[in-house]
Design a protein around this nucleic acid. Structure first.
Length: 505
RNA sequence: GGGCAGUUAGCUCAGUGGUAGAGCAGUUGACUCUUAAUCAAUUGGCCGAGGGUUCGACUCCCUCACUGCCCA
């Protein structure tokens, strides 16, 4: 204590302040020292468990109050609470499956072990061996005969009742969030189940999962600003991928008729409740089908996920009931503008639309195309109203550079986007396989780009691949993070990404 | 990038222009079926950082940092 004494008249220097420890931490260090001095290894090497605590509980449910079990069980986990009662102590040990009570009795373990256990702290990782019994209140409890310290914890755990609420700490130190908040682990378990079930679903249909480059020499496959990086040996600028699309379609050219990839995309844009700079996308391509085929598959995938993971097709998201039962509604983009926005685009001139958008203070670039104007109307007057699952179809061809033109109307693309809760959760189309048309569309994109969201060079290699011939194909992309948000009722994308990007501190 | 809100003990939160509070955690003591254990006592704060106003600032003003939410 004396080394921390300071004259109250003199303020602490920053160094002194940093060196000053809270009593909580000092106490844990003192306990560590005490245990070491008494021959306890504070960091164990292994511990053979007889099972997870939920398994141990499950096979001991028949225990009768007042009668000790006969089988020795061994559990391990983090000490999450301690209730001392003089010569006996109750505590709880939590492992991946759950939490189980343990009971340490002085006349069972002996004076020495009992006094050593008093130096264990909440947060320590322990191994407990003993028989199971049922307490007066009916709780299955391990009566410790042996107590092992497996890891000493040196920092205080978050508060036991309120948990950890500070969002900044929860995102920056996710491990603490996982320790303190059980529902967080559930969220990420569901996330894993979602990707696993998507794989199960697609694998069963004969799809091949592949991995394509994350570092591109030309960013393509989407309209977005890329992150740039540099390869030293090749002295070459590289771009983190914004989409895997052009590589996956090269594989369709190569004869992989059903491929998919579930992996990260990187987009150098703002952060929001819906956007993280790196996010996970499913992209799949199937030869010899069109946008209608993959639209059906999109619906099938989501319904499959709901059935297998949630066991219900009606979910509640942010207070809104969402029914994912098929078939989902389908509306053309202009139809949706009429239906949800009360605007009859077909009978409006470009000038009419521009005037309407300007009233909403929407910036319009010079030389804007009709298709872009229609899309802006959709964004402004429709998107937020699409709560129940719906497919918006018939996108303007100008905003769909990788889609085939509709077979009966050259102004619209054979493309759709599924919406839930006002959020775009995917994108799909009949893949453009006319190399010359593709090249022309790339050139038009570059000319129209005013925000640096399109690479200035055309991916000639991709165009060349198309020239060798790509069979007709349907493609679908789905944002995995957004699906996870719906399935876990998460308000922010940061709640479904284990380590969301945070500003350096 | 713009707007609003927030930042107080390890955690969860109060608080007022007059020198900072609770619960949990910690420490000490009591307690051999408790479970948000209980009871008694107790330690712990550069009140996010910097500047300004003031006799006096955790409180009012400005700047900055970080976070959350809304908008672009």
């Amino acid at each position: 204590m004396s080394e921390h004494d300071t004259n109250p008249e003199t303020p602490l220097t920053p160094e002194q302040h940093a060196a000053k420890e809270s009593e909580v931490i000092r106490s844990k260090k003192d306990n560590l020292l005490f245990l070491k001095e008494h021959g306890v290894l504070p960091y164990g090497y292994e511990f053979k468990r007889t099972g997870l605590v939920e398994e141990v509980k499950a096979r001991n449910t028949a225990a009768v109050e007042g009668v000790d079990g006969t089988v020795q069980e061994a559990i391990a986990g983090r000490l999450v609470s301690i209730r001392e009662h003089g010569k006996s102590t109750f505590a709880n040990v939590k492992d991946f499956s759950g939490s189980m009570q343990i009971y340490i009795k002085k006349d069972v373990v002996g004076d020495e072990v009992y006094s050593l256990f008093k130096k264990f702290d909440i947060g320590d990782i322990v191994g407990i061996t003993g028989v199971v019994f049922k307490t007066r209140t009916g709780e299955l409890t391990v009566k410790a005969s042996k107590i092992e310290l497996l890891t000493k914890s040196l920092l205080p755990m978050p508060e036991k009742f309120h948990g950890l609420k500070d969002k900044e700490i929860r995102y920056r130190k996710r491990y603490l969030d996982l320790i303190a908040n059980d529902e967080v682990r559930k969220t990420f378990e569901i996330r894993t189940k979602i990707t696993k079930e998507i794989r199960n679903f697609l694998d069963a249909k004969g799809f091949l999962e592949v991995e394509t480059p994350m570092m591109h020499t030309i960013p393509g496959g989407a309209k977005a600003k890329p992150f740039t990086t540099h390869h030293n040996a090749l002295d070459m600028e590289l771009f983190m991928r914004i989409a895997p699309e052009l590589y996956l379609k090269r594989l369709i050219v190569g004869g992989f008729e059903k491929v998919y990839e579930i992996n990260r995309n990187f987009r150098n844009e703002g952060l929001s409740i819906k956007h993280n700079p790196e996010f996970t996308m499913l992209e799949l391509y199937e030869a010899y089908t069109d946008y209608k085929g993959v639209m059906q598959m999109c619906e099938d995938i989501v319904v499959h996920l709901a059935d297998t993971i949630l066991g219900t097709r009606v979910i509640e998201y942010q207070g809104e009931k969402i029914d994912m039962s098929p078939p989902w509604k389908k509306v053309s983009m202009t139809g949706s503008i009429k239906e949800y926005g009360g605007i009859d685009v077909d009978n409006m001139s470009d000038a009419d639309i521009i005037e309407m958008l300007k009233k909403k203070e929407i910036q319009i670039r010079a030389g804007v195309t009709r298709g872009e104007l229609v899309t802006l109307l959709f964004d402004e007057f429709v998107e937020a109203k699409l709560i129940q699952p719906v497919f918006i179809t018939d996108f303007p061809v100008e905003v769909s550079p990788l889609s085939k033109v509709n077979r009966s109307n050259p102004k619209i693309a054979e493309r759709f986007e599924p919406y839930i809760f006002g959020r775009e959760i995917g994108n799909g189309f009949s893949e453009l396989n006319d190399a010359e048309d593709q090249e022309a569309r790339f050139r038009a994109q570059i000319e129209m780009d005013t925000h640096g969201e399109v690479a200035k060079t055309i991916d000639e290699d991709y165009v060349e691949a198309l020239k060798y011939g790509m069979p007709p194909a349907g493609g679908l992309g789905m944002g995995i993070d957004r699906i996870v948000m719906f399935f876990t009722n998460a308000a922010s994308i940061r709640d479904v990404i284990l380590f969301p990007l945070m500003r350096g501190k």
